[in-house]
């Protein structure tokens, strides 16, 4: 219960929060923009790390390995997308099917359930050893923060393009989108690929950070991602209206989640209960909008003039 223990642990928690923030942005893309809860991410959150670690162990450059990891994630998204659109399987079930098959795929990629990588022997981009007592430009928190700024800038640009706008329309109103000539199936597949690509990138960073990839590292990832999205929106939703800022709020939500988690652990909670706690918190937050509309609904305010 030493307060210094907590303070010492916070930078690490922040770094983890940032890395998971990239994953949360991926969840935001499917959950909020495409209006699909994509459970593929539980599998992808290991695939990225597995690909990255295995390639590095085989002598690949860290950047190449991370690029390949992202590609592998996009492939997983493609599979879910094909299940959902071409084969007509409901989105949730499509994600579950891919997630399940990824468990085998991940085992095959790694050859066993867990693969470690030694930070002293390999040139890792991020690591829990690069949090304190390293040159600023090597600091994991800084590197991931820069990566996030770049990613948000890219996504902001993309969702302002014709293609990006059509993706947003697809999630908002598929009937209208088709009537306006938008191929909604293509949009869904592309969105799932983008999302899972980001998740796999996050996974690749996480595996480097913790120094290993593990077949169970993605378990419950979707819930952590949703927690980040919900916390971010609950706290910053009122002030951050712009799309780029919404993405930032998701990352901040993820950081807060890990800081709170660290504090809860420091208070001495049984860590076995953490996932249960997270699930309960997310369930309650998801229920709040529903309860609000059901039990506390106010008369609808009319927007603007009502002459038509």
């Amino acid at each position: 219960m030493e307060i210094m223990n907590l303070i010492n642990a916070l930078p690490g928690a922040a770094a983890q929060g940032l890395i998971w923030g990239i994953m949360a942005i991926g969840v935001y893309l499917t959950y909020r923009i495409l209006d699909v809860a994509d459970l593929t991410v539980d599998g992808t959150m290991c695939t990225g790390g597995a690909v990255c670690i295995m390639m590095m162990l085989n002598g690949c450059n860290v950047w190449v390995a991370m690029l390949a990891a992202t590609g592998a994630g996009m492939l997983a998204g493609l599979v879910t997308g094909i299940f959902h659109t071409f084969m007509g399987i409901p989105a949730i079930l499509s994600g579950i099917l891919t997630q399940l098959s990824l468990y085998s795929v991940n085992l095959k990629i790694m050859g066993k359930a867990n693969q470690a990588i030694n930070v002293d022997k390999y040139n890792l981009l991020v690591s829990l050893r690069y949090i304190k007592n390293v040159p600023v430009w090597q600091n994991t928190i800084l590197i991931v923060a820069i990566a996030i700024v770049v990613l948000i800038a890219l996504l902001y640009w993309f969702f302002g393009t014709e293609l990006g706008c059509s993706l947003r329309a697809t999630g908002c109103n598929p009937n209208m989108s088709r009537a306006q000539g938008i191929n909604t199936n293509f949009g869904k597949v592309l969105g799932l690929m983008l999302s899972n690509g980001l998740v796999a990138l996050s996974s690749a960073l996480l595996a480097q950070y913790q120094g290993f990839a593990d077949v169970n590292m993605g378990r419950g990832a979707i819930v952590i991602g949703l927690a980040a999205v919900i916390i971010g929106e609950a706290i910053f939703g009122k002030i951050f209206r712009n799309f780029a800022l919404s993405l930032l709020s998701v990352v901040l939500g993820s950081i807060l989640y890990y800081l709170v988690l660290q504090t809860v652990i420091w208070r001495g909670i049984d860590t076995d209960l953490l996932k249960l706690l997270t699930a309960v918190v997310v369930a309650v937050f998801l229920a709040v909008p529903y309860w609000k509309s059901k039990y506390f609904s106010k008369p609808v305010k009319k927007g603007g003039n009502t002459n038509a």
Partner: peptide, 24 residues
């Protein structure tokens, strides 16, 4: 599309029947 702006809805309609690429 309810969550999109009036001008964004019009811009979507303006591109009906045309390829949607990475232009603005």
């Amino acid at each position: 599309a309810a969550t999109m702006e009036i001008q964004e809805n019009l811009a979507l309609a303006k591109r009906r029947g045309k390829p949607r690429l990475l232009r603005k």
